[in-house]
Design a protein around this nucleic acid. Structure first.
Lengths: 121, 121
DNA sequence: CGGCATCCCTGCCGATACTG
DNA sequence: CAGTATCGGCAGGGATGCCG
């Protein structure tokens, strides 16, 4: 067990942290969830679907997800341009676990909200 | 499927987001992982075990985890004071899914690092 | 020992304007 | 349509000092 603790602590450059930190940002998980529900989706459709994300953060987050090989970006050389995003196999394998987390959150959010309310008082 | 998308998008007050956002901060997951490996742990031991967390953020994060009912805080009225933290059943049920994510990260981090390196060029 | 209060700064993120 | 570029706010988080 001491061994296992060492994995996560004292190593600021811990690779597990490097990977998981990307899931901790504001939009990555949400985008993966959306792209997990469809075959592919264009930039503007993503923008409208998520609703409250800025164009800039949509672009930035899509780029980092692409860099990690979690989504694939396809540019069609047309005018006007068309860009489609789709989740990769690697992304799907991650999404499985993310969906478990979402399910857990749905199951427990009432209790959690109640705990938070009590904790205030 | 459209229904499911609605759950996550366009609702800034989405309760699922409210819950999962707490996992997205810098230290919550790490603390849960540590407390999941032991019966209980005192404040200073936690501080030393994690190593690169500030005292302030350790306190703050422990409080939010406690507020969500994921950990339990026990104060022993001694001098010098002793405070022990332990994971709750709710916390354990979350930890199951978090550990899956960690396993996934360990399995995929090499490929991901390679993808990131290629993406730079 | 286990905090809390304060100051301060980085960097995430949003808003806006411009482009091929 | 799908971006890029720039500016700026502000919240997360670190460093330090004080306290019961």
């Amino acid at each position: 067990m001491e061994k296992k603790l060492e994995i996560f602590s004292h190593f600021e450059e811990c690779p597990v942290r490097k990977v998981l930190n990307r899931c901790g940002d504001k939009w990555s998980v949400l985008i993966l969830l959306v792209l997990g529900e469809v075959d592919n989706m264009r930039f503007n459709k993503l923008h409208k679907t998520i609703g409250d994300i800025s164009q800039k953060m949509l672009t930035v987050t899509l780029r980092t997800l692409e860099a990690d090989g979690l989504i694939k970006r396809t540019v069609f050389p047309e005018i006007p341009p068309r860009v489609e995003y789709e989740i990769t196999e690697r992304g799907k394998s991650l999404l499985v676990h993310i969906n478990k987390l979402v399910d857990w959150a749905e199951e427990n959010m009432e209790d959690i909200m109640e705990s938070r309310a009590k904790f205030e008082s």
